[in-house]
Design a protein around this nucleic acid. Sequence first.
DNA 1: ATAGGGTTAG
Length: 871
Amino acid sequence: MSFSLSTLSEQTLKLYLMIFGLKSLSRTHVVSFTSRYFSSVPELCHPHSAHHLFEKSPRRDPSEYNALLFEYSHSDRNKEALNLYAGLWRSGFSVDGSTLSCILKVCGCLFDHVAGKQVHCQSIKSGFVENVSVGTSLVDMYMKTEDVGDGRRVFDEMGSKNVVSWTALLTGYAQNGLNELTLNLFCQIYVNEVKPNPFTLATVIGAVANRGVVEEGCQIHTAVIKSGHESHTIVCNSLINMYSKSGLIRDARAIFDSMLQRGAVTWNGMIAGYVTNGLDLDAFRMFHWMRLAGEKFTQPVFASLIKSCANLKELSYARQLHCQVLKSGMGFYHNIRTALMVAYSKCTEMDDAFKIFSVMKGVQNVVTWTAVISGYLQNGIMEQAVHLFCQMSREGIRPNHFTYSTILTAQPYISIFQVHAQVIKTNYEKLPTVGTALLDAYVKTGHVKEAAIIFELIDEKDIVAWSAMLAGYAQMGETEGAVNIFLQLAKEGIRPNEFTFSSVIHACAGPTASAEQGKQFHALSIKTRLNNALCVSSALVTMYAKRGNIESANEVFKRQGERDLISWNSMISGFAQHVQGKKALAIFEDMQRQKLEMDGITFIGVISACTHAGLVDDGQRYFDMMVKDHHIYPTMEHFSCMVDLYSRAGMLEKAMDIINEMPFPAGATVWRTLLAACHVRRNLEVGKIAAENLISLQPQDSAAYVLLSNIYAAAGNWQERAVVRKLMDERKVKKEAGYSWIEVKNKTYSFLAGDLTHPMAERIYSKLEELSIRLKDMGYQPDTNYVLHDVEEEHKAAFLSQHSERLAIAFGLIVTPPGTPIQIVKNLRVCGDCHSVIKLISLIEDRYIIVRDSNRFHHFKGGVCSCGDYW
DNA sequence: ATAGGGTTAG
């Protein structure tokens, strides 16, 4: 009912009374009507309000007390209502059932369990406890004050019950999050031959919505139709909400379309449904329709639409809504302001988000603080986020579980141990959100074991928690741990989602995973229809590429229905690793033609494709293009690629020029790249500079010492070589052991250089012996420059022939039928001598041999390698 | 109204 309050005169009031069929204005009438009409306007002190009449009244009777009590309770002045009730009780007036019901509602709203219990006693004393309405109100009060046990007890003791009593209990269960009990009780209503009313149905539908089980949703809809209340507005509103929450947005829309009378809740329900289901454009279409229908916009509609702008990163529309919200006087609602802050944060407009936050000074709460902190974190402004987190505590706002799960992503600007301690104190550790964020923080600092302990402590592990743990193992290269997590979650009946698959497939790209495992997860993703999710298919492209199966990688890429930057980058890098430079560049040109967004990683792929294909000029051209045309600032990785490009082509001086002209000092990776090239090219002069720089940056890195001493050895400078060796011993630097892996019949076998422990060692060594004789017959001379140890030539040859990749290949030749391709994975780079030997083996044994070393793939066939001896 | 996990390079 809308009217301008200031113009409401006695006359108007008379008119209203006439509408209600009353001829005269008795005192009681005035009291009861005014309290009803003025109850929704708390700050109003109209001369006709019950409050005024009450004050002026010469003798106060129970009806006046009651009228004012109702007015207070309806206008959310619950404390005043409770005081008035105490006065009423003290005055010795007898109370009736409706008074008790009213005050019980007040107790519920105030969460005042103690006062509620007192009223309960008074109801017993006055005998009104037998009254159905009072009993029902008692149930409601207990449920609202979270005393589910007493609520149920009162209900059970009630002599007579009606639908409202059942509904009160039902609503109580639902409000306390006891969704399963709510559903059970709903079945009992039928057993007791009570007919549910629209409120009963709306409550149960809400409980079903929270559980999100589609089958239950269909069942409840059937019950609604049977009850005959299917067209009732509040029932339809709940159904719309339920279907949206279960992801069945089309069913929600069907309900919406069928409705004869739509309220503001209906429109908002539909709009909010579209937003939560990611159909933001449909939400806006609905908004447009709502406007055409002449419906008034309420505050939740704006909140939903602003959220939609955040999802779409639609800044200009967010600003328009901001204006509209201010114009319609809704700019002061907390939820609107928070939604606006989130939208501005998502559009990288942190200044605007912060402006809203600072304007709220004095009324800021945990939610607003968390929103602004989260905004800074998402925009990578970690220092400011941490600063605000500290300030928040100083201003006496206690962080909640949202805040903790957010701030834990502020690595490395926070001490996770400190935050962990706070989390334990506040008992948030067991919550899946906080636990997951904590676990991830430990993974990112390299503490996988601690992360696993935290994971175990999480109470009800959801799919996000499981996926985070799985990703943790995958990121640390622990394939087995990752796969085990997947098997465990499947066993517990948890449904993996696209993130779970992308992580487990990523784990299967590791050197110790079997190729078969990756394929199986691919199959499983197809079964669950998640294979087409972008993150899954991109992970598949990389997995197949890293497993040496570039054809399958390309096949997955070609079948991608839509692509994003990562998809394109994955394919470019895949081709680059497989030395298919031309194909990598073709993909890149396709991207250019379509004018797609590119980033620094795209160019790392492109330049490394040029490097592996020996296209020096092209590499330089792409680097220049990146800086000049795409305005991408080159990072250390890019310079590393450029140094690689020139030094592999033997242009070591040019590589040094790159290093000297870099805008920042070269890092270890850059020097290591240069050093490796000097090793291949036997360039002592540049090699010395590279090694010295690398050693000063990473004194514990064995590669620097090993490569440098090898360069000295190659130059026959044994004295200098001995100095390097001595330095290595003094600093206790251990050479990284060379490992190779081979997969035969779904089992992975690993070999260490000079390994004698393998059960088939004897046969492997005799196979190597046999091969070495045949190689010598073909005129092969071992290149002993690749041996570090200062020993006799003959022994050096023996060391060489025991490199792990040769053991693995010999094993492969023995255990697989002739003609079977052999695939090896190695943790270090393959040495020059092994490279020549493997070429010859592929010829004399007529085998296709694929070696993936730490750097790239080598496809050996008929005596040649795909890298063209250029690596 | 606020929250946690993922895919690309090296």
